[in-house]
C-alpha cells in the first residue's frame, strides 16, 4: 500500500528532505538571478570579455550535484556559472571574479570562463570545449588510487562530444573502471551548430555502449528525473563499478555568448522551451506535494535575490589586483 502511493511521488520528493528540496529550489533561483545579475553588470560595463549564460538549464546543474559532497569533484565548462553555484560556491566571490577583483575565486585572473571553487570540489570551468573530460578521468583515478570514496562529475555539452578528448576520456574511464559520471548537458546546439547536424548518433547517450558503460537520456528540465539518473550513476561509481553517462536534454534561453544573433534557431523554438521552465516546474511540484506553500516559495526566491544583490555589492567594493602582479601564480611561490 505504502509502496503504491509512493510510486506517484517523484523520485526527488521521496529521496530528499524538505530542507534539501527547499535548498535545491533556492539554488535554482540563485543561478537564474545570478545569471541575470551578471548579464546586467555586463551591460553596465562592470564585466568585460564574454559570458555564456545557463538560464534555462538550472535543473540540470542543481539536480546533478544533489548527492555530491564537498569532497566529490566536478569539472565544468565555459557555461559553468550554474555548476559552480550548484556545487556550493559563494556568489559574491563569483561576481568578484567577473569584476576582475582580487577577492574573486581566481583572484581576477580567470573571469567567467575559468570560474572555479576548488574548496567545494569545483575544479573549474574551461575555455576549451572538451578540456575537462580527461581531467575528470584523472580526478577519478586519484580517488581510486588513494582509496577515497569520492566521485567526479564531468559536465560537458553536446558540442563537446565530437572532440577526440571525449572519446579518449570515456574509453580510459571504462577500461580502468573509474568513479566518474559524464553528464552531457544537451541543449541542442554547440554555438550555432545543431547536435542533429554535427553528431552522427541521435542521442549523446548512444555513445555510451561503445565505451561499455550505461548511458541514459533524461528530461534535463525535470529536476527529479535528473536527480534519479545521477543517484544511480553515483551509486554505481561509489560501488566501484565504473563510469556512466547521463544526458540531460535541456535548452539555453539566451544566445551562445554575448555576441550571438540567434540566426540559427527560431523564435518559436525558443518560446516553446521557455514554456518548459525548469524552475517554475520544480517550484510547482514542491507546492503540489506540500513541501512549500506559495509564500514559502516566494521567501526562497527573495533569499536568492538578496544574495545576488549582496554579492554584486561585495564585488564592487573589492580591490583589484595590482598590475605589477602579472606573473604571480605562474609558478608556485618559492618557500619563504
Amino acid at each position: 500500500m505504502m509502496r503504491d502511493s509512493q510510486e506517484n511521488i517523484p523520485f526527488a520528493l521521496r529521496q530528499f528532505t524538505p530542507a534539501q528540496l527547499r535548498e535545491a529550489l533556492r539554488k535554482m533561483h540563485l543561478i537564474r538571478l545570478f545569471e541575470e545579475g551578471a548579464e546586467e553588470s555586463y551591460m553596465r560595463g562592470l564585466i568585460h570579455g564574454t559570458m555564456h549564460l545557463s538560464i534555462g538549464q538550472e535543473a540540470s546543474a542543481v539536480a546533478t550535484c544533489m548527492e555530491l559532497t564537498d569532497a566529490d569533484k566536478i569539472t565544468s565548462t565555459h557555461r559553468g556559472h550554474g555548476h559552480c553555484i550548484a556545487k556550493g560556491a559563494d556568489v559574491g566571490r563569483m561576481f568578484a571574479e567577473f569584476f576582475g577583483k582580487e577577492t574573486g575565486y581566481c583572484h581576477g585572473r580567470g573571469g567567467s570562463m575559468h570560474i572555479a571553487d576548488v574548496k567545494t570540489g569545483n575544479l573549474g570551468a574551461n575555455g576549451i570545449v572538451g578540456g575537462g573530460l580527461p581531467i575528470a578521468v584523472g580526478a577519478a583515478l586519484t580517488a581510486k588510487r588513494l582509496g577515497r570514496e569520492e566521485v567526479t562529475v564531468c559536465f560537458f555539452g553536446d558540442g563537446a562530444n565530437n572532440e577526440g578528448a571525449f572519446h579518449e576520456a570515456l574509453n580510459m574511464a571504462a577500461i580502468w573502471k573509474l568513479p566518474v559520471i559524464f553528464v552531457c548537458e544537451n541543449n541542442r546546439y554547440g554555438m550555432s551548430t545543431s547536435a542533429a547536424y554535427a553528431t552522427a548518433v541521435k542521442n549523446i547517450a548512444d555513445r555510451a555502449p561503445a565505451y561499455a558503460m550505461p548511458g541514459v537520456t533524461v528530461d534535463g528540465n525535470d529536476f527529479s528525473a535528473v536527480a534519479e539518473a545521477l543517484h544511480e550513476a553515483i551509486a554505481r561509481a561509489r560501488a566501484g563499478e565504473g563510469p556512466s553517462l547521463v544526458e540531460n536534454l535541456t535548452y539555453r534561453w539566451r544566445g551562445h555568448s554575448k555576441s550571438d544573433r540567434n540566426r540559427y534557431r527560431t523564435k518559436d523554438e525558443i518560446e516553446e522551451w521557455m514554456g518548459r521552465d525548469p524552475i517554475a516546474r520544480f517550484r510547482a511540484e514542491l507546492i503540489a506535494h506540500g513541501v512549500l506553500d506559495e509564500a514559502g516559495a516566494e521567501a526562497v526566491e527573495a533569499e536568492a535575490r538578496a544574495a545576488v544583490a549582496a554579492g554584486i555589492e561585495f564585488a564592487r567594493q573589492s580591490p583589484a589586483p595590482g598590475v605589477g602582479d602579472v606573473t604571480k601564480f605562474v609558478h608556485a611561490e618559492a618557500a619563504a
Binding site: H48, G49, K101, G108, R109, H114, P321, V323, V326, V330
Partner: peptide
C-alpha cells in the same frame, strides 16, 4: 609577459 593572459583588464593590458 612571462605569463598566461590574465582576465582583469588592467593586468591584460
Amino acid at each position: 609577459a612571462e605569463a598566461p593572459i590574465p582576465y582583469n583588464p588592467d593586468l591584460e593590458r
